[in-house]
Nucleic acid binder design. Sequence first.
DNA 1: GTCTATAGGCAGATAGAC
DNA 2: GTCTATCTGCCTATAGAC
Lengths: 201, 201
Amino acid sequence: MPRPLRTRSPDTAARILDVAERLVQRRGFNAVSYADVAKELKVTTASLHYHFPGKAELGRALMERYAERFCAALEEIERTHAEAPGRLRAYSTLYLRVLEQDRFCLCGMLAAEYQTLPEDMRQAVIRFLDDNETWLTRVLDEGRREGSLRFTGSAADVARAVISSLEGAMLVARPYGDTSRFEATADQLVASLTSGHPEPA
Amino acid sequence: MPRPLRTRSPDTAARILDVAERLVQRRGFNAVSYADVAKELKVTTASLHYHFPGKAELGRALMERYAERFCAALEEIERTHAEAPGRLRAYSTLYLRVLEQDRFCLCGMLAAEYQTLPEDMRQAVIRFLDDNETWLTRVLDEGRREGSLRFTGSAADVARAVISSLEGAMLVARPYGDTSRFEATADQLVASLTSGHPEPA
DNA sequence: GTCTATAGGCAGATAGAC
DNA sequence: GTCTATCTGCCTATAGAC
């Protein structure tokens, strides 16, 4: 049963993160100010500093929540897709959904800005990439053992190539404002790993 | 025969662009200020404004020179490499050289920051990507006709996938400070297009 | 061409009232 | 928790001397 309504909104910190996340994914961390976020939420920057003492803390929270949600999405994919090729397609669809919202992957954006980031955020970027690589490596390995995927070399190397390819495809698609550019590359990528196995519609 | 030494340095504008280019490729356009560039050159920001009235003009000049040099490098590749596979490898090496200098592709960096860029710079980013795609498409098409390359689908789609893959591999390699991460992905990419043809050492 | 000096604005951040 | 008010510093940019 839901709790009775409270005086304050359900979770102000979460709403701050929502706005900040969207802005950072579109413009980059360095191009987003407390004032930008505060303006959209119709509060003052002082109020933001109450919830997140500094931009470094805000950024860290941003990346942590993003990674948590992404990991949850990966688990969801494993529940809903039994086969490796389906899991790969679902994985690339996660990226597509972000692009469709006119956003770039938060991790990709922060990777570009990496050299200007505080240490906490840097570690969060690395962790996100490592988690993705670990998950993909497992999917690729299982797919190869089952015979549903085909590739040469180590699964970890291919996992890195998949991440690179999808991040790069997003990066390049955005200036054109054309999601089909991303889809074409993603489809090629999945097809190259499932050669010999027909793609479902 | 070289002209006699002049009172002023060979080309101040070029030296400004050199410093700005390096800083932007490392930190991003939004994270580089006139003061940063001026400090390295030991001049004042006012002097910078003499050569480039505003940051937008500086950015445009930056991207234009970068594209010119890149196109020149592509022509050089065609002169020095007769076969498509060699041209592809040389192309990926262009990216590697940038990464080795602890930089990201200027175009990739600006693609990430695209939504915050002035119109002139946006057009320059698109032009750069289009030029790369055109060149790669030609190389891929010729390679397939000669039989030295193998891939399915349109050469233009594969060209886009190659660009995405290399840009993404650079993006992801930088947080790790590990050029071998890039090389592994680039090698996989070239190998996947030259299957059936042994790689030279 | 480069300087000093400065304008005007926005950045991140804090103190203290309510 | 959110506000007003304010601080300090950096940003892009310009005027005018040299």
